[in-house]
Computed example of a mutant assay.
Amino acid sequence: MRDLMNNITPKVVIAPPAAAATDNTAQVGSIVDVAGYDSLTFIIATGTLADADATFAVLVEEGAASNLSDAAAVDDKDLIGTEALAGFTFAADGAARKIGYKGGKRYVRLTVTPSGNTGNAPLSAIALLGHPRSAPTANPPA
Rank of each mutant, 00 (worst) to 15 (best):
R106P: 09
N117Q: 05
L129R: 05
Y101F: 02
T137M: 03
T137K: 00
P114G: 13
L110N: 02
A121R: 05
P132F: 01
L110D: 00
R133V: 10
G119H: 11
A127Y: 02
L129K: 02
P132R: 05
T137W: 01
N117W: 11
K102I: 12
V108C: 05
S134E: 14
L110Q: 01
Y107N: 07
Y107F: 15
G103C: 00
N117E: 07
G104N: 13
G103R: 01
H131S: 14
I126V: 15
S124R: 13
T111G: 03
L110Y: 00
Y101K: 00
G104D: 14
G104I: 11
L110W: 00
G130V: 08
V112N: 01
A138N: 10
L129W: 00
R133D: 09
S124Y: 13
A135S: 13
L128R: 06
A121L: 04
A127K: 04
K102C: 03
N139G: 06
I126S: 00
R106T: 10
T113A: 11
G103M: 06
G119N: 06
P136S: 09
R109G: 07
T113S: 15
S115T: 15
Y107D: 06
R106H: 09
G104P: 00
G116H: 08
L110F: 05
S115C: 09
T118Q: 15
G103E: 00
L129E: 09
T118K: 11
A121C: 04
S115F: 12
G104M: 03
L129V: 05
G130H: 05
T111P: 01
V108I: 13
R133F: 01
V108D: 01
L123W: 08
I126M: 14
A135V: 05
L129S: 01
A135E: 10
T137R: 03
A121H: 02
N139M: 09
P136L: 09
L123I: 11
K105L: 10
S124D: 14
P136A: 05
A125M: 05
L128Y: 04
V112L: 02
A121F: 03
L129I: 06
A125H: 07
G130I: 11
N139K: 11
R133Q: 14
A127S: 10
R106D: 03
G104W: 08
G119F: 11
A135R: 11
P136H: 07
S134C: 11
V108N: 00
V108L: 06
P132V: 03
S115V: 14
Y101A: 02
L128Q: 09
T118R: 10
G116T: 12
R133G: 12
Y107L: 10
Y101C: 05
G119C: 10
G130P: 06
R109H: 07
T113D: 02
G116K: 06
R109A: 03
G103N: 04
R133W: 03
L129D: 03
A121S: 12
A135D: 08
G103K: 03
P114Q: 08
R106F: 13
K102S: 12
V112Y: 00
R106S: 02
T137Y: 00
I126P: 02
P114Y: 06
V108R: 03
A138P: 12
Y107S: 04
R133M: 14
T137F: 04
A135I: 04
R106L: 07
N117P: 07
K102A: 10
N139I: 11
N120I: 09
R106G: 08
V112K: 02
A121Q: 03
S115W: 12
N117F: 13
P114F: 11
S134W: 09
L123F: 08
A127F: 08
